[in-house]
């Protein structure tokens, strides 16, 4: 039996520099340390008094995304959120406070905000959702896992709609960030918040989510992915490569799949664990978006890959 189609009705890609609109987005030339508070007040209508930078990223993205659908989401809309680093800045602050030579006393708000699920809480609160709310922390594939859970619940009618996001914040000093994510010195550290609103109604959809598939360790995932993409049998397929995909792996896919177009997004958001959320959302919200089949592909350090395929529909 064919699985129920899932449609995308809204997409937001908020990157460094606090620029949520695609037309104004620029290629990053250096790391950015962004103050999101003005955007918080603009988007949410008030400051997030107890929220961290990470919480702000998530709440702004969620609010902008639901704002696109033009009506309040049903209260039983579920929220799925992926993060690779969680509240990394608050975690570092807490360790400084509690461990020598710190005072030993944890600041209450830092402690509360050190919990990664606090971002999903504030995102849900900002848009009035009180149904299922899951935070997935699975490193580079956190967003894909969250999206997979959402699709599974939608297809089985467990939830009528889903708000799915991924966010991570950068942190300084830069050397620590690069070391933590095992990045090269020429990579720009990123941060951002990407969100999709999904349901099973084709009416007015901007895209259709075709699949989220996992290619486990112990198999030649690159060949398997190549065969999977080829099986769609379309002339113009756009590959949206995640940050762990190497130049050699992209080249191998292009060799196996002549005509494969590559749509890079990391120049706009930098490198961070849930950049996939930004990249996938950008495919849908860019002013110059091209209809067609897009496949986002990323892998983790354990050589496990995840593919997200979506069809961007005509406006």
């Amino acid at each position: 039996m064919a699985e129920a189609p899932i449609y995308i009705h809204a997409a937001v890609a908020l990157g460094p520099g606090a620029v949520p609109a695609g037309a104004q987005r620029q290629v990053l030339v250096h790391d950015l340390e962004t103050d999101l508070r003005p955007l918080v007040r603009q988007v949410l209508g008030q400051a997030l008094r107890q929220g961290s930078h990470f919480v702000e990223l998530a709440a702004i993205g969620a609010k902008l995304c639901l704002g696109q659908i033009g009506k309040p989401a049903a209260a039983d809309t579920a929220l799925y959120f992926g993060t690779g680093l969680g509240q990394i800045r608050k975690t570092e602050s807490l360790l400084d406070q509690v461990l020598p030579p710190g005072s030993g006393f944890a600041a209450p708000f830092d402690f509360i905000n050190a919990s990664p699920n606090m971002a999903a809480f504030h995102a849900a609160a900002a848009v009035g959702l009180s149904a299922r709310n899951l935070t997935v922390a699975q490193d580079e594939l956190s967003f894909e896992r969250a999206l997979d859970l959402a699709i599974s619940d939608l297809r089985r009618g467990v939830t009528p709609a889903a708000l799915v996001g991924g966010a991570d914040e950068n942190f300084f000093p830069r050397a620590d960030y690069l070391r933590r994510l095992a990045l090269h010195d020429d990579e720009i550290m990123g941060e951002g918040s990407g969100w999709l609103f999904l349901d099973r109604d084709a009416n007015g959809a901007r895209g259709e989510l075709l699949c989220v598939e996992r290619y486990g360790t112990g198999q030649n995932w690159l060949d398997a992915v190549g065969r999977r993409i080829a099986a769609w049998g379309e002339a113009a397929i756009r590959l949206v490569p995640g940050f762990r995909l190497s130049i050699a792996e992209i080249a191998a896919l292009r060799e196996a799949l002549p005509g494969l177009l590559v749509v890079p997004y990391l120049p706009y958001c930098g490198v961070y664990p849930t950049a996939a959320a930004f990249g996938i959302a950008m495919c849908l919200e860019s002013a110059s978006v091209q209809p067609g089949l897009y496949v986002h592909l990323n892998r983790n350090a354990q050589d496990e890959a995840m593919l997200v395929a979506l069809r961007v529909l005509k406006a």
Binding site: G86, S115, N117, V136, A137, T217, Q302
Partner: peptide, 19 residues
């Protein structure tokens, strides 16, 4: 990841962080 590798679990793996 380490547990999945140790027990050779090849199904989906997930880490949830909901306090």
């Amino acid at each position: 990841h380490e547990l999945a590798k140790h027990f050779d679990l090849r199904g989906p793996t997930l880490t949830l962080s909901t306090a």
